[in-house]
Amino acid sequence: MSNILTFIELTADGAPRSSAAALLQRASQLGTPVAVIAIGPAHRDAAVTALGALGVEQVAVLASESADGAVGSAQTDAVAAAVDAFSPTVVLLPHSAEGRDVAGRVAARLGAGIVVDAIDLRADGDSVHVTTSAFGGAFTVDSVVEGGLAVITMRQAAAGEAAAAVQATVTELGSQQSTPAAVVEARTGGAAASGRPDLRSASVVVSGGRGVGSKENFALVEQLADVLRGAVGASRVAVDSGYAAQALQVGQTGRTVSPDLYIALGISGAIQHRAGMQTAKTIVAINTDADAPIFDIADFGVVGDLFSVVPQLIPAIEARTR
């Protein structure tokens, strides 16, 4: 299936964001990935080198001073120009804040068909079948794009084995007729570097809810996540109560996660929370309320006090993994 344009999100200094590796691997299952980037000229070479290190053989670059000052504008122009240059049938983007903006603008500008938050892709002749999930994973939906270019955003997933590093070939993209954009006035640092895996693609997620009781107690959730090398999540109540950062929210209005193991601590399992985690392969719940709905979907439930169970569980797991 020829060239698969793959939009790579970059930090301001040209490093590919965490979504890149898995997205490129998806693209290479369908055809030849062509990474598309927009970057300030000063960081252009660093970005190309970093993509080569991820095994990308072709990079299409729009070098633009506005790449990190005008929200999504140069990125949209880059993808539109790359569609002109490479005539792909598919453009892949991450289903992230920036990826969604760029996907929406590109699809509207080019009259492309768009499918978002895909969890799987399958080539079928010249068309691509896109799998999405609806209502928190209760339904699986298979879609195709008819009549032209398919713009697809992919849900973040864990990357597989890294490809061997190569020296990427660069195609320079020309500037486009931009749509006016919002401008960035200030950036306040990245999310505190926790050293933990990204919530969206982690294979283990440990989440805390109302039962955790306080911001201080949330350290217990983090400690369990750390012995399992997992990410930390939180219910909406825990976020609204200030126990955990908004970026950690799992559920209808937060992240959707699908890890191998999801451990719910002090989470009752309201329907809106379940919509964000019920496709996890294995669910463990610890809650004092035996009637909590989380137990209806848990593969293993402990009716008990998390402040008694978790402090014993942490050393027990450590003893296993040592």
Partner: peptide, 12 residues
């Protein structure tokens, strides 16, 4: 314009 068409819906 090109458009996306839902081919199949399966309940899990």
């Amino acid at each position: 314009a090109a458009r996306s068409i839902v081919v199949e819906v399966v309940e899990r």
